[in-house]
Amino acid sequence: MKIAARSRIKSPWLFHLNTGSCAGCDIEIVATLTPRYDVERLGCILVGSPRHADVLLVTGPVTRQMLPRFIRVYEQVPEPKVVVAVGVCAISGSPFVGSQMIEGPPDKIVPVDVYVAGCPPRPEAIVNGIVTALKKKFG
């Protein structure tokens, strides 16, 4: 394993993008950082800028307003990048299927590596999703 890939697995930095979710998944993502689940012990940090991130966590069906912003944020994440779709909305658009305001799901627009199911998924599932994505990409 090359040293760059190894260090990426050691400390994956996360960027979280809300593309129109109900805030349920967003809270669970923040909850993974708090003492009960504490992903920071695995080297994960939620960063403020997509340019610093290795992993892009996408929640929500992509709304029409967020579509150009979503593409822009995706392009700003440096290669090699991993995209994790968190929640049922980001997998299929679940309860909002049929709405004319929805342009998603995200895998229509950008390649998605791992899907984490649940409405919202438990923090354990989100951690598992990040680990799976990193294994798939670098392991």
Binding site: T63, S99, Q100, I102
Partner: peptide, 10 residues
């Protein structure tokens, strides 16, 4: 309006 999902119409 960035997270407008058209719930009332749905």
């Amino acid at each position: 309006g960035h997270v407008h999902r058209g719930i009332e119409a749905l």
